[in-house]
Design a protein around this nucleic acid. Structure first.
Length: 623
RNA sequence: GCCGAUGUGGCUCAGUGGUAGAGCACUCGAUUCGUAAUCGAGCGGUCGCGGGUUCAAAUCCCGCCAUCGGCUCCA
């Protein structure tokens, strides 16, 4: 039960000196851009243009697509408008008057917006450069006010938009070098894919050029850490066109890391009182009809396949299988809670345009678990899940969380009383855990409310991973029972939860968090031996053998390259520790150790080396 | 799925109608080397796939697939 939010929320940590003013600035930038666009491309219709976390955008309706070249022209035009330092004037207008003006301008989207504004609300418009434009002076007279060639229409140094504001007082308050246009993208009118597709131009804007530079550097940093790029460079995984989009191939180094993650996960769960299950990847469609998935989740399920006149379904979820396992025998209240976990691989149909590296795929493995418990155990069990989640995530280096409590959505099943009980149990557990959280009204699953946990990575971005959901729907649909103390049959409550969410996605987050520079316990290769010449091969083989016997992941550079090249190759592969073996080391039975973290450590015996590495592994750190 | 861009050896990329290129990787040879690239040679591509235009297509046109930036979706 994992939502696969594929992009992180903004990790923007560039602090503005005046946040309110920055929003006005960005909003004004959007207007300036719209003005520039309509000056350059008069046939373009305007729609909306808000500020965003890093800048602004404006959606336009125009027959021809904007090209990168158009963006440069628009940006140049915006600078002219900024340099002209045009006043921005707010005006409260009568609805009918404005309506007539909009009709005259042939702006259908603006008309729709105007007509959507409740009668009681005041209506405002914002002018740029009207009604009394300040004409520029001096040699850098902007093109804006150049005298038009004969036959061309006179340029209009005036533009207005129906807008609630707020805005800056003049365009000159925007720093022309703290603003750039970033990209063009398709967007739907009112975010509705049945409505016309518009062209959205994104820009970024800041108070100062320094802030802009900091933002651009952050963007570069995110690009440097991109798990798709690092996955290729470090040979961790691939997604192959020949196989199909969204299907992941784990290469030996990535698979080794996955194995480490899985091993850790299994031990942690066994220690926390879970049992492990393995269940099939396909099953009779009837199961999915009973569970409600066929009704509620069909759009994301792969097509059914017919096997001997029966319809079978590739699984998009694990829960019905755990439910069947529970149902297979009668349970006493004395057995509960039952905590069953599975690294369950699921397949979900995702529209081609949404696939994204490991973050959004069509086949992935959830670290899924279901807790079957008594109503009075729910709160304790949720609290225990929160504890386990914290333990596991912090061992992977994630100590900062943002927590959401999502309540009943419009499209949902179940009685109000059950929703209330479940939502209260989640709330109570969060309070007992002492975690602050934000309530997301209507953000729950169709079958129950949930807690979502986002982790903050090394560069401040938030990623959704863990989810905890209370479900009274499946127990109902499958008629799950336990025998209560009085001998009556009662219905257990089911808690779904995943900590990593999806292994693929979590792995991608790990790659980005560490920028491929993994702590020693996770590094696919922990140490590489670099023989200075062929004479040291036997010694290197002996050392490698010893270290491998002790459980270290070791390899020998077999290239025959010179030492400098071997070191370069190891550095590029981000191998945490290299050990040079030359004539000296063979004679003294040592290793000359060099780590990515601390550089040259000098000569160490094999035993000393092992000690250093064991220490780093134990604290999940680096050498 | 929608809008736009992109797709050339294993990787990164050049090549805009006239005989497919570079660097790295790989193989071979020489060198046996001390902390981020030794030298030389060689191998390797039906230019994403399928159609079309043309005497001639990596290059132009159409369809499809995948990837990238977004939109929509994300139980």
């Amino acid at each position: 039960m994992v939502s696969q939010l594929s992009r992180p929320s903004s990790g923007d940590r560039i602090a503005p000196s005046d946040p309110q003013r920055l929003l006005r600035l960005r909003h004004t930038c959007a207007h300036v851009m719209a003005m520039a666009v309509q000056r350059l491309f008069p046939q373009t219709r305007v729609t909306i243009g808000p500020w965003t976390e890093t800048g602004f955008y404006y959606d336009f309706d125009r027959a021809d697509p904007f090209t990168p070249d158009d963006l440069s022209r628009i940006e140049a035009e915006m600078r002219q408008i900024i340099r002209a330092n045009l006043p921005i004037i707010r005006e409260t207008v009568e609805r009918d008057e404005l309506r007539a003006a909009i009709v005259q301008l042939h702006e259908p989207y603006k008309l729709e917006i105007l007509d959507g504004i409740p009668a009681a609300e005041p209506i405002t418009r914002y002018y740029i450069g009207c009604p009394d434009p300040v004409l520029p002076q001096g040699p850098e007279s902007p093109s804006l006010f150049d005298i038009p060639a004969p036959g061309e229409p006179a340029p209009v140094a005036c533009w207005w938009d129906l807008c609630a504001g707020p805005h800056l007082n003049t365009t000159g308050e925007i720093h022309p070098d703290a603003m750039v246009l970033e990209s063009v993208a398709g967007a739907y009118w009112r975010g509705d894919e049945t409505k016309p597709q518009l062209q959205r131009i994104y820009g970024t804007a800041w108070e100062t050029p320094e802030q802009l530079q900091a933002y651009l550097q952050q963007k570069e940093e995110a690009k440097r850490r991109d798990h798709r790029k690092l996955g290729q460079e470090l040979d961790l995984f691939s997604i192959q066109e020949d196989a199909g989009g969204g299907l992941v191939f784990w290469h030996p180094k990535g698979a080794r890391m996955r194995l480490l993650i899985e091993d850790y996960w299994r031990s942690a769960h066994l220690a926390a009182g879970y049992e492990l299950l393995y269940t099939p990847h396909i099953a009779n469609l009837d199961l999915w009809k009973t569970s409600g998935h066929f009704e509620f989740y069909r759009d994301n399920m792969f097509d059914q396949m017919e096997i001997e006149a029966q319809q079978y379904q590739l699984r998009p979820m694990n829960c019905p299988f755990h439910v069947l396992t529970y149902q297979h025998q009668l349970h006493s209240y004395r057995e509960l809670p039952l905590r069953w976990a599975e690294l369950g691989t699921v397949y979900r149909y995702e529209r081609s345009g949404v696939l994204h590296g490991l973050m959004r795929v069509r086949g992935f493995t959830q670290d899924d678990a279901h807790v079957f418990c008594l109503p009075e155990q729910v709160s304790d069990e949720i609290l225990a899940v929160l504890d386990l989640t914290e333990q596991i995530l912090s061992d992977f280096g994630f100590a900062e969380y943002e927590v959401n409590l999502s309540t009943r959505p419009a499209k949902s099943v179940g009685a109000d009383a059950m929703w209330e009980l479940a939502t209260n149990a989640l709330r109570q557990a969060l309070d007992r855990k002492g975690w602050a959280y934000v309530t997301d009204e209507g953000g729950g699953a169709f079958y129950g409310p949930k807690i979502d946990i986002k982790i903050r990575d090394a560069i401040g971005r938030l990623w959704q991973c863990s989810t905890i959901q209370v479900d009274f729907n499946l127990p109902e649909r499958f008629d799950l029972q336990y025998v209560a103390a009085d001998g009556s049959r009662q219905r257990p409550i089911m808690i779904h939860r995943a900590i990593f969410g999806s292994l693929e996605r979590f792995f991608g987050i790990l790659v980005e968090n560490y920028a491929g520079d993994f702590p020693l316990w996770l590094a696919p290769v922990q140490l590489r031996l670099l023989p200075v010449s062929d004479d040291q091969r036997d010694y290197a083989n002996g050392v490698a053998h010893t270290l491998k016997q002790s459980g270290f992941r070791v390899e020998i550079d077999a290239s025959g390259d010179r030492l400098g090249k071997q070191i370069r190759t190891a550095e590029l592969a981000k191998i945490p520790v290299v050990a040079v073996v030359g004539k000296r080391e063979v004679e003294q039975q040592t290793l000359s150790v060099r780590t990515r973290q601390s550089g040259d450590l000098g000569a160490l015996t094999v035993a000393e080396m092992q000690g250093r590495m064991e220490e780093a592994i134990a604290e999940r750190g680096r050498v």
